[in-house]
């Protein structure tokens, strides 16, 4: 089978490097165009099992705002993001909360924790 070239834009950081991956028989032979090692890792993941960091909010009681911003402490499969968002709608926490505090451990068994983005009193 011929070598196939796929182009994609790196989203690891705002530099948005244009990446080119050479693929043969479903195997990634090479990645070019990246300006750091994270770019190559991104291309390999994106073409096989794309992952994203997930950010959203959960309800919070006794705080000066009704919502607490949260973030996953690692990336999770892109296809699971809407499921995670749905799950977070059932969560309510109480102030005070410190930044980095685990709000949902191992969300949906994906091996990633949902943590508070900020402190809120």
């Amino acid at each position: 089978m011929a070598i196939e070239t796929k182009c994609l834009s790196c989203i690891v950081c705002p530099l948005s490097c244009r990446l080119r991956a050479e693929i043969k028989d479903g195997k990634i032979l090479s990645v070019s165009g990246n300006s750091c090692p994270r770019g190559e890792m991104y291309a390999r993941n994106e073409l096989t099992a794309p992952r994203r960091v997930f950010t959203s909010t959960v309800k919070i009681k006794n705080a000066f705002l009704p919502l607490l911003p949260v973030v996953s402490d690692g990336s999770l499969p892109k296809g699971k993001i809407l499921d995670c968002a749905l799950f977070l709608r059932s969560i309510e926490v109480s102030a005070p909360v410190r930044a980095g505090h685990v709000i949902v451990p191992d969300i949906l068994g994906l091996g990633v924790n949902i943590v508070a983005s900020r402190s809120m009193d």
Binding site: C13, P14, T55, V71, A99, S117
Partner: peptide
């Protein structure tokens, strides 16, 4: 609340808050 902040300033990817 999205991430992508701080890569230059703190060498780490942070949310806005």
């Amino acid at each position: 609340i999205h991430n992508g902040f701080g890569l230059r300033h703190f060498n780490e990817e942070l949310t806005g808050p």
